[in-house]
């Protein structure tokens, strides 16, 4: 679906209003989206889609994906989580995935930043250097 420039602008404005101290406020997001759906302004669906995209991107920035070759023990995952919280703040959410393709080691992704300590990555770098 093509999103018009006006809808984009409105969505961006709504997104700006849903921030409190630079962080997304759940109550505000819910309030804004409810109002949008009930009042149905012009091209509200486009606005809502764009707004959802912006919220999704912001949420991804506060969400960590931890991939490992083998399932991590409780202790290990807690340590990683604690470390992430000291680095990025307490509101960060995390998700653990098992990815056998990594061979060994872990790969942590927060927003668009990736810390890759997997064997797969090192092998890739090695093959590129050769």
């Amino acid at each position: 679906m093509k999103i018009s420039r006006e809808a984009r602008r409105a969505a961006r404005e709504m997104y700006r209003l849903s921030l409190v101290d630079g962080r997304l406020d759940t109550a505000r997001v819910k309030d804004i989206s409810d109002r949008l759906v009930s009042e149905k302004p012009r091209s509200f669906l486009e606005i809502l889609k764009e707004y959802t995209r912006l919220v999704r991107l912001e949420l991804a920035n506060r969400h960590a994906v931890i991939e490992s070759a083998l399932a991590l023990s409780e202790d290990e995952s807690n340590r990683i989580l604690a470390d992430l919280k000291t680095r990025f703040g307490n509101d960060i959410t995390a998700e653990f995935r098992v990815q056998p393709g990594l061979l060994a080691g872990i790969r942590i992704k927060v927003g668009s930043d990736v810390w890759d300590g997997s064997v797969r990555n090192r092998l890739n770098t090695l093959s590129q250097q050769l």
């Binding site: 992704k109 668009s112 930043d113 990736v114 810390w115 890759d116 300590g117 990555n121 770098t125």
Partner: peptide, 10 residues
Amino acid sequence: SASTSKTNVG
């Protein structure tokens, strides 16, 4: 030896 590389992805 254990240093992980930080990259930016999309």
